[in-house]
Amino acid sequence: MAVIVALSAFVMTLVGGWTAQRVTDRRHLVLGLAGGLMLGVVGLDLLPEALEAAGGEVHGVPAALLLFVAGFLAAHIMEHLLARRQAAHGAEEGASGGRAPEVGLTAASAMVGHSLMDGMAIGAAFQIGGGMGTAVALAVIAHDFADGFNTYTITRLYGNARRKALMMLFADAAAPVVGAASTLLFTIPEQLLGCYLGFFGGVLLYLAAAEILPEAHHEHPARSTLLCTVAGVAFIWLVVGIAG
């Protein structure tokens, strides 16, 4: 049952990626919406889950928050190291605006990892009971639209070819199905899952705040772009509220 439900997440992820492709003539609106979706996912979904699941404190600070900060710093350091390496090889600024394509692929890979965890969450919830499984599945299916949208947008934003963006999109779409199927064999300890979510949340926040939103407002500092960002956050809030 969990695998069958995860197939709906597969479809919803592809719909999100397709939407991101179709509105390329309004790139600033796409980026504004993507930034809002990512901000909403981090603040309203990932971080609360991480704090609840990770438990424990390290020197007076919740472990999930420490890993959240570590994820933010890791993304910041990685981007600068890759950018310096790119400059050392004589890369010139082009369509990617001087960004290292590897950063986009790494971020998209993290999205795939998150979707894999989503699938495992569906499987684990169905092991508890049908009602719990349905509630978790609805939440995952709803926000997988945002996952697909963000996976394609992030990959393309950093100058990767459309072929690579589609490859990462399909990997992200398949991940929940694989994750759900894996729960037939084993489960991830809740504390480890919480730590992962905290770290991943930090990475996403960096990409949203330091890259995607500034890019969205760079050439088109329009009110419509800001409204798209707010709409993205509101959408995730609605999804979290319905799931709760």
Score class of each variant (00 low, 15 high):
5 V>Y: 15
6 A>V: 11
7 L>N: 03
11 V>Q: 03
13 T>A: 09
14 L>V: 14
15 V>D: 14
16 G>L: 05
17 G>P: 12
21 Q>G: 06
22 R>S: 11
24 T>V: 14
26 R>H: 13
26 R>G: 05
28 H>V: 07
29 L>H: 04
33 L>V: 03
35 G>P: 08
37 L>S: 14
43 G>I: 04
45 D>P: 03
46 L>P: 07
47 L>S: 11
50 A>T: 02
50 A>S: 12
52 E>H: 13
59 H>W: 13
63 A>W: 06
68 F>V: 02
70 A>G: 13
71 G>C: 04
76 H>Y: 13
77 I>G: 04
78 M>R: 11
80 H>W: 11
83 A>P: 10
85 R>P: 10
91 A>C: 06
91 A>E: 10
92 E>K: 15
95 A>I: 13
96 S>P: 02
99 R>Q: 15
100 A>M: 08
103 V>S: 05
105 L>P: 02
107 A>Q: 07
108 A>M: 14
108 A>P: 09
109 S>R: 01
111 M>A: 04
113 G>R: 04
115 S>E: 00
127 Q>A: 13
132 M>N: 14
135 A>R: 06
138 L>W: 09
140 V>L: 00
145 F>H: 00
150 N>W: 02
150 N>T: 11
164 K>P: 04
164 K>Y: 12
166 L>D: 15
168 M>A: 11
169 L>C: 06
169 L>S: 10
171 A>C: 12
179 G>P: 04
179 G>W: 01
180 A>I: 04
184 L>W: 12
196 Y>A: 08
197 L>Y: 00
203 V>R: 04
205 L>S: 02
206 Y>W: 05
213 L>T: 13
214 P>D: 09
217 H>M: 07
218 H>C: 04
218 H>D: 09
219 E>T: 15
221 P>K: 00
221 P>C: 13
224 S>D: 12
224 S>H: 01
230 V>L: 11
231 A>D: 12
232 G>C: 11
234 A>Y: 02
234 A>G: 02
235 F>L: 15
238 L>R: 04
239 V>H: 04
243 A>Y: 09
243 A>I: 05
243 A>C: 08
243 A>R: 10
244 G>H: 15
